[in-house]
Amino acid sequence: MKKWMIETVSSTALALALVGGLGTAALHAGEVKSIAILTPEQGTDMGWNQQGVDAAKAADKATGVEVVVAENLGYGDVRPTLRELGEDGASLLIAHASGYNTAAPEIGAELKIPVAIVDSPDKLAAGKVADYTASGHQGAYLAGRLAAKVSRTKVVGIVVSGEPPSWNNMSVAFAEGVKAENPAVEVRYAVIGPAAYSDAAGGKRVTETVIASGADVIFGQGNGSSFGMLQAVETTKATDGGKAYFIDVIGDKTSIDKGFLLSSVVWDLTPVYTAMIEDLKADKFGTRNYDIKLSDNSLSLLKTKNVPDDVWAQIEAIKADIIAGKIVVEPKYDAESVHKLVKAVQ
């Protein structure tokens, strides 16, 4: 009797282990039916959140994988949402906010579901965690060249709503672009606040101050707060009495522009998410970082009617040089690099 019980329990345990193991193996080896993306704000912010949602949907079309969007989750604890999406069958959880970098790997490990996080290149874990610290530095460098070309006051500003690695990277590249174009142009830098991503009032207040310091071109990086920056540019004259201009990042605000949007460093994360899904199917997830670049148009500088044609032609030539490798823009993700360079430029 005792022997029979041991054999039965052992067989059952072995069977369960095999089923579980095979199930997990199947999950990692190709059965990717659906993925989920979590965003802190609505996917209609013409910036970070919208790019994440739009790109995930585009990747859905490209790969035939269903995408579940959980947006407007705020900047608090998203563990319940992650757990719910995971238990609903998502094969991949894309945590589209640096504030989710702790919770997502934790829940991923708990549910044995791969997760993708941002701004953490050193947290790669095969089959478990992938990072997509998208580097818009090549585009930001072009934006810096453009800003220095059009600035009348010879002072430009950088306003950011936080210092996450991907934004530091673009701030550095922007300042380098300014310096490369005209070393005499001053760069002024201000952070609205710690994680002030939705602080539109702060965005306007700080941008007004930077404009009052002499800047007539503002390179702004923020989610909801970027609308405050745009509003400041629209309602505040530069110190020479002329217009101030705004260079946005990630999204395209042309549809709501009142004539003050100079350009934008536009991201397209579709290739990133598509590659993630393909890697998941090929059991290579978590073995590499994902990036965006000028050469495949996943990164581009927006042409608006406020950029003179001759200046744009020069920018296009510089872009060609970057793609050809004649100009090399190195990514630098730390805030210290930003501060050093801004001081050097001044």
Partner: peptide, 16 residues
């Protein structure tokens, strides 16, 4: 005051 006089725009979570 934040949305009308300062920011001139409303965005979610803007009370910050």
């Amino acid at each position: 005051y934040m949305s009308i006089a300062v920011a001139g725009v409303f965005v979610p979570f803007m009370s910050h």
